[in-house]
Simulated scan of single mutants.
Amino acid sequence: MQIDLSDKTALVTASTAGIGLAIAQGLAASGAAVVLNGRSEASIARAREQLLAAVPGATLYGVAADLGDAAGAERLLASLPAIDILVNNAGIYGPQDFFDTDDATWERYWQTNVMSGVRLARALLPGLVERGWGRVLFISSESARNIPADMVHYGVTKTAQLALARGLAKRVAGSGVTVNSVLPGPTLSDGFAAMMQDEIARTGKSLEELGREFVLANRPSSVIRRAATVEEVANLVVYVCSTQASATSGAALRVDGGVVDDIL
């Protein structure tokens, strides 16, 4: 299969590191022009340098905007070229007991994880429908279906993304625009590496070894028995963004290593 996105422009939110950066690289390697988004010009500059080293000659734009509120979304939208592909990757996570999670925390997670995608889809979907082609993706999580007891607030926002994507797919049915969700499981992202930094120094183990131990201890239902790489997540996203994926819409597609223990 030859995926060619050379006539497409993609926006990947929160794309200066981790899964978002890997997605941006995969799309750029397939020929798409990519709009990088991060909270600072410095983070965008670093990501641009990395991507140009990996994909020489890539067409890259950059917009610094924090999507945790409406003003940040407006700032991003005001600076965009015409977009064919929207990957809603912006999100925050962190463990906290339900009984200690106050309204302000719930609101912060809701605004960043859900409303950022709502705002961008509301603004960009009409143009995609008018042109008769487009791809919208929400990067959710296996936690959307396997709600973590120590991150109920996070899991709820990830489940909401599935509902949002399914509803939008139905809203634009027959238009040539697809809307889907991708659900990563434990992944060797920059965030995971930062979380494991002290453990790497203490034990001398590699990030991959610690990722495997984390999965076996915390996600024992995993079929692959290890954490995924960011590239493995990005590979699925790039396919779903392609012209070849035109019959896939309204789907919640797992790249969780089989953590969610069902056959659907």
Rank of each mutant, 00 (worst) to 15 (best):
residue 237 V to M: 08
residue 136 V to H: 02
residue 199 E to W: 13
residue 221 S to C: 00
residue 214 F to N: 09
residue 176 G to H: 09
residue 213 E to F: 01
residue 211 G to D: 13
residue 198 D to V: 09
residue 231 E to C: 04
residue 137 L to V: 03
residue 43 S to L: 12
residue 216 L to R: 13
residue 58 A to P: 01
residue 65 A to R: 04
residue 11 L to C: 00
residue 222 S to W: 10
residue 173 A to D: 08
residue 72 G to P: 10
residue 263 I to K: 05
residue 119 R to C: 09
residue 227 A to E: 05
residue 71 A to P: 07
residue 28 A to M: 11
residue 141 S to C: 06
residue 32 A to K: 07
residue 66 D to Q: 12
residue 158 K to F: 15
residue 121 A to T: 14
residue 155 G to T: 14
residue 171 R to M: 02
residue 255 V to I: 13
residue 104 A to P: 01
residue 134 G to V: 03
residue 263 I to H: 12
residue 258 G to A: 01
residue 181 S to W: 10
residue 84 D to N: 09
residue 208 E to P: 03
residue 207 L to M: 15
residue 57 G to L: 14
residue 185 G to N: 06
residue 174 G to Q: 10
residue 263 I to R: 05
residue 196 M to K: 15
residue 17 A to K: 13
residue 77 L to N: 12
residue 112 T to E: 03
residue 60 L to P: 05
residue 178 T to S: 08
residue 143 S to M: 10
residue 219 R to M: 11
residue 30 S to H: 06
residue 101 T to K: 06
residue 209 E to F: 14
residue 82 A to E: 15
residue 132 G to D: 11
residue 134 G to E: 01
residue 211 G to W: 14
residue 219 R to F: 14
residue 157 T to E: 07
residue 135 R to L: 01
residue 199 E to G: 04
residue 249 S to V: 00
residue 63 V to W: 11
residue 139 I to T: 04
residue 187 T to S: 12
residue 73 A to Y: 06
residue 59 T to N: 11
residue 252 A to C: 09
residue 198 D to Q: 15
residue 261 D to T: 11
residue 55 V to M: 13
residue 205 K to Q: 15
residue 67 L to Y: 08
residue 221 S to V: 00
residue 19 I to E: 11
residue 97 D to C: 03
residue 172 V to I: 04
